[in-house]
Amino acid sequence: MTRDRVSAWNERADGRFAAGDYRGAERLYRSALAAADRGGRTSRVTAVLLNSLGVVCKHLGKFREAERCYRRALGVLTERDDTGPADLAALYHNLGGLEHARRRFARGEPFARRSVQLREQAVGAHHPDLAADLTALAALLDQQGKYAEAEHLYRRALAIFRRAYGPEHSEIASALNNLAALHQARGDDARALRTYRRVFALQERLVGPAHPDVAFTCNNLATLYTATGKPHLARPLYQRALAIFESSLGEAHPHTAVCRENLRRLTERTRRRIRKKSSRV
């Protein structure tokens, strides 16, 4: 009975997470984990649930708790004789992603490289799981200014994703979003704009207009419009992103705070320009 209950909670939590309801997913994963713990702390099920809970906590900005979950899961798996490289790769991937969220990019790079190494050992060079690891490593590299290697990895990952999934998939949208940010960082605003627009249209079709992923792209696109002197295009995108973040992630989440600050700065710059023009009349 406990196993059935854990399975049901886990399945519902996965659904809530996919829909962008991270707080609902967190509650369900915690219920499943509590039940699994009663059945044995070192079970593989416990490790899987800890990993899933860590992912949700990262998305909710609970970084310390996410790290505790990942490291506890890693301890569970390393104590087992039946743990394969793919199991460990998933946790190293997530540890690297957590450091990215913390903006500790250099600290995350070794985790991500270990994930790629383990995953290729487990599934080969053309598997979409490897492509996800390549994307995560590239994201850490481009934040350190290692643009050439990052772009190579993004394009390698995109080729794998397209062979595996076709032209439309959430992993493709995620990799393209990161590639657009890389183009922007390099100063290639035209390519960044084209890529963000592709991502935006793809995400709306895949996950709907109110998903946090859409808000993230809205914020990025608005930042590009702001940098290229188009505040009238940036403002509605910031406003839309902020409404989604507040609704789905809460007002205290880091994404919400960054978006709110971006909108505040844009508003202040607009007011200063208006005052300056008025003083010249």
Rank of each mutant, 00 (worst) to 15 (best):
L141N: 01
A157C: 07
Q203N: 03
W9G: 07
E168P: 00
V56Q: 07
H59L: 08
T270V: 02
E99F: 13
A138N: 09
K146T: 03
Y147T: 03
T226G: 11
A131K: 11
A34W: 02
L95N: 07
L28V: 08
V281K: 12
L91M: 08
A201S: 07
E251M: 03
S279E: 13
F200G: 00
A139Y: 08
A180Y: 08
D87C: 10
K277L: 13
L74R: 11
Q184I: 00
R71D: 08
P85Q: 14
R197I: 04
D21C: 15
L141Q: 15
S279Y: 09
L28N: 10
A131H: 12
Q239Y: 00
L137F: 07
H127D: 15
E11I: 00
L263C: 02
H232R: 14
L134A: 06
A175I: 10
S174V: 12
T217L: 00
Q239M: 07
W9T: 00
A139I: 04
F111P: 03
R30E: 15
A125M: 12
V207T: 00
M1V: 02
E65T: 07
V6Y: 02
D82A: 09
G250M: 03
F63G: 09
H232D: 14
A139N: 14
D129H: 15
A101R: 12
E79F: 04
V76E: 11
R163C: 05
E151Y: 01
G96F: 01
Y22I: 07
T228H: 06
I172K: 13
H93M: 05
E251P: 06
L137G: 04
